[in-house]
Amino acid sequence: MMQYNIYITGVGGQGVVKTSIVIGQACIKQGLNVVTSEIHGMSQRGGVVPVEVRIGDVNGPIIKKGGADLLLSFEPLEALRALPKLNENTFAIVNTGEIVPFTASLGISEYLSSDEYLSELKKYLKVVIPVNAEAIAKEVGDSILSNMVILGVGASVPNFPLKKEFIVEAIKESFKPRYVNLNIKAFEKGFEIGEANFK
């Protein structure tokens, strides 16, 4: 039976949980079993927000070590922190936009550049796709749409189990009517970028 594991990570306010809701709704529409596990208690304080989404013949919500098929990371440092869940064949879609932790701003910890985090990630993974999601989202209409850009790129990877039309339908149901078209445009733009990478 089919199993597909998606690890989504980012910082509070980036739409990590909303992205997992869209994926979950799309799974239901397509008739696929889906189980999610989320930790977002720190989301309002700019803390780390990881969500695990398991699709298909699965029971528990937790992705085993090295078991993720796809990483959707909304922040480069968080992509690197996700390594225990990844394996060399995991497709990694990584937003290059940097969110410097307050501890680094205060000089308590160190924050490297996006390029350095991506370079380190590429030592372990065969496919790492950096995406300037905020810039693309601004072209569409608003930088807040960056999560749908990342989802769009992720939906284009080989063997992704969800059909695009079901994700679009899920977006329609997951956002207020006045934001639906913008979110769909952001998703479609991300999908186009992803398709160009896999041709």
Rank of each mutant, 00 (worst) to 15 (best):
Y4W: 10
Y4H: 09
Y4G: 07
I8K: 07
V11C: 03
G12L: 08
Q14W: 05
S20N: 06
S20R: 08
I21R: 12
V22W: 08
G24I: 14
G24W: 09
Q25V: 08
Q25K: 15
C27Q: 08
T36R: 10
H40E: 10
G41P: 00
G41Y: 05
M42C: 06
G47W: 00
V49P: 01
P50E: 03
P50I: 01
V51P: 00
V53G: 07
V53P: 01
R54S: 04
R54E: 05
I55P: 01
G56L: 13
D57R: 12
V58K: 10
I62T: 11
K64W: 06
G66Q: 11
G66P: 01
G67D: 07
A68H: 03
D69H: 13
F74S: 06
E75G: 03
P76G: 11
E78R: 02
A79N: 03
A79H: 02
L80Y: 07
R81H: 02
R81S: 01
T90V: 12
T90I: 13
F91Q: 04
G97D: 11
V100W: 00
T103W: 00
T103I: 08
A104C: 10
L106S: 01
L106P: 00
G107L: 11
G107H: 01
I108W: 00
E110W: 01
L112K: 14
S113D: 07
S114I: 14
S114A: 15
E116G: 03
K123C: 05
K123D: 07
L125S: 05
V128F: 06
P130E: 12
V131Y: 05
A133L: 12
I136M: 14
A137V: 06
A137N: 02
A137S: 04
S143I: 15
I144M: 13
S146W: 02
S146E: 12
V149S: 07
S156C: 10
N159G: 00
F160P: 00
P161D: 13
L162H: 04
K164W: 02
K164A: 13
E165D: 12
I167Q: 05
I171K: 10
S174N: 09
F175P: 03
V180N: 08
L182V: 03
N183E: 09
N183K: 10
K185Q: 13
K185N: 11
F187P: 03
E188Q: 08
K189D: 02
G190M: 11
E192L: 15
E192V: 13
I193K: 08
G194R: 07
G194C: 11
A196Q: 13
A196I: 14
N197P: 00
F198G: 09
F198D: 06
K199F: 05
